[in-house]
């Protein structure tokens, strides 16, 4: 099966050789050397190979059941059952439906190698077994929604889920993920295996709301404040850096109307009305007031720094909907709050 060629360590993460001087707290000069703890690996998958091959080649999941205590574990992390004094366990296929153990968590700040994938959800799933029960141990999985970016409220405790197989599988745990059954048709739930391409992704339905005069007025203030933000960014080296190497046309739909802004070459340019073409990213928020509080908080470089939550939290809380899983535009905007403050205080 063809696989996409990617580097384990992205070239941008590789340090150049170098030694630099830094000032210590005691006023003396100290040295810092660019380096890396670097070891290439050809990491043996050993006894787990069979499990991952089944994901890749059969689109099936199996566990190990102990004939003594009848426990079935998925993933099959051991072949012998310790509580039964290392009784030999047997292979047993399980179903591709299950329930969550608890509400999955949503990762916003990820390890270095995953920082381009946020936000993503991680959760534990008990899979259904052929005898109308569930596995005794839970499988840890990525949890996804077909409806834009992941947010709270999509999954909870004991949410029925369906396991979806990626179209291109490599023989690893990322070959599968879970989606809520509530987002699927009966036919999709019944289909085995259900492939990623069987589903329609990033279906964000525009909420139905009535534009009220209060919200329209608030939106005017939001647009004006965003325009002012664009001007302030142009005077802040740190804020310019926050938006550098990033180009996006972003449409913002609210209960007070729509506007859009362009991020390009470290600048932010704001326009009334909807974007005339296809925006790279669509942000949807019914009440524009939280946006207004955020932008006012960002523009206020002298007061308390945390009078508004960051935009990232609006996304995570589900107040600000993204039409696709791409948090970077939002996190770059959030960085500007601190950058404007630091540059203002510096001089």
């Amino acid at each position: 099966m063809a696989t996409e060629k990617k580097f384990v360590i992205p070239p941008a993460m590789l340090p150049e050789t170098g030694m630099r001087e830094v000032a210590g707290n005691d006023g003396k000069t100290y040295l810092v050397r660019n380096d890396a703890m670097f070891t290439g690996m050809q990491h043996a998958q050993g006894e787990f190979s069979e499990f991952f091959l089944a994901l890749r080649d059969e689109c099936r999941i199996f566990g190990h059941r102990c004939p003594g205590c009848n426990h079935i574990i998925v993933p099959p992390f051991e072949k012998l059952c310790p509580p039964c004094n290392f009784n030999k366990m047997t292979k047993e296929y399980v179903l591709d439906i299950g329930i969550t153990v608890a509400t999955p968590v949503i990762v916003v700040f990820a390890p270095a190698r995953f920082k381009d994938e946020v936000p993503f959800a991680l959760g534990y799933v008990y899979l259904a077994t052929a005898d109308n029960s569930f596995t005794d141990s839970a499988l840890f999985l990525r949890m996804r929604t077909t409806q834009g970016a992941i947010r709270p409220g999509i999954f909870g405790k004991e949410t029925p889920v369906k396991i979806v197989f990626r179209d291109v599988r490599r023989g690893e745990i990322l070959d599968i993920f879970a989606v809520p059954q509530s987002e699927l048709t009966a036919a999709q739930i019944a289909k085995t295996p259900l492939l990623e391409s069987d589903l329609e992704w990033n279906r964000v339905e525009t909420p139905h709301w009535t534009v009220t005069p209060e919200r329209a007025d608030a939106l005017k203030k939001v647009v004006r404040s965003f325009q002012l933000l664009g001007e302030r960014i142009a005077t802040s080296p740190r804020a310019i850096k926050d938006l550098a190497n990033w180009e996006r046309n972003v449409e913002v739909r609210t209960g007070g109307g729509t506007f859009w802004f362009r991020i390009q070459d470290g600048t932010l340019e704001v326009h009334d009305g909807p974007h005339s073409g296809t925006a790279n990213l669509v942000l949807t928020i019914e009440d524009p007031m939280p946006l207004l509080r955020w932008v006012e908080n960002t523009l206020n470089t002298s007061g308390e720094s945390l009078t508004s939550p960051p935009l990232t939290d609006f996304v995570i809380e589900g107040r600000l909907l993204l039409n696709k899983t791409e948090l970077e535009t939002v996190t770059r905007l959030d960085r500007i709050t601190r950058s404007l403050r630091r540059d203002a205080n510096a001089g």
Partner: peptide
């Protein structure tokens, strides 16, 4: 390195899972 790390699991996610389950 087989089941959890490839998913992007880390300390905060791990402790958050316990906290969220407790809150459930």
């Amino acid at each position: 390195p087989w089941f959890e790390r490839p998913l992007g699991a880390h300390a905060s996610a791990s402790y958050a899972a316990v906290v969220q389950a407790y809150m459930d």
